[in-house]
Amino acid sequence: MSLVISDEIIQASGLSEQELILEVIILLFQKNNISIGKASQLAQMPLLQFQNELAQRNITIHYDESDLEVDLQNLGMME
């Protein structure tokens, strides 16, 4: 499934398409909708780079056992 964001929304945001996508990913992470591993994967950033992005924004990194399980499933290490 794909999501189409109109040019009008992108222009109104004042961000590039890639910047807007990153903002959405970070918002999903902040709301605990996705794990940090999934967020870095979606952002196409190495985990450390994504963590640095969060740190620059003063966003607390939450990571617990359920996040670990999700990340392991995403990596195909758990069934």
Results as ranks from 00 to 15, higher is better:
D64K: 09
I5T: 01
G76Q: 04
I9K: 07
L3Y: 11
L3C: 06
Q11K: 12
G37H: 05
E53Q: 08
V24K: 03
A39D: 03
L15D: 01
A12H: 01
H62V: 13
E53S: 05
N32Q: 15
I5V: 11
I26H: 00
S40W: 06
L15N: 08
Q11P: 01
S40Q: 05
L48T: 14
D64M: 08
Q11H: 07
E8W: 00
E17P: 06
T60G: 06
M45T: 02
I10W: 00
E17V: 08
T60W: 04
R57M: 04
A39S: 12
Q49E: 15
F29W: 01
Q49R: 15
L75Y: 05
D7Y: 05
G37Y: 03
I59N: 01
S13I: 02
A12S: 11
L47C: 06
A55G: 07
L22S: 03
G14V: 02
H62G: 11
S66E: 14
D67A: 05
L22T: 01
L72V: 08
A12K: 10
N52R: 12
R57P: 03
L48P: 09
M77Y: 12
G37C: 10
T60C: 06
I25D: 00
Q44L: 10
Q49A: 15
K31L: 11
I10K: 00
V70A: 14
I5A: 01
I36W: 06
I21W: 06
G14R: 00
T60F: 10
I61W: 01
V24Q: 01
E19H: 01
I26C: 02
V24L: 13
S35L: 05
L15Q: 09
Q11Y: 04
P46A: 12
S6C: 07
Y63R: 11
L68Y: 10
D67I: 07
V70W: 10
I59C: 00
D67R: 07
V4N: 12
V24C: 09
E17H: 09
S2Q: 12
S6G: 12
Q18G: 02
L47V: 14
I26P: 00
A12V: 01
E19Y: 02
L22R: 00
N32D: 13
L20W: 05
L72P: 04
E23L: 04
L28V: 03
T60V: 10
S40D: 06
E69K: 15
F29Y: 14
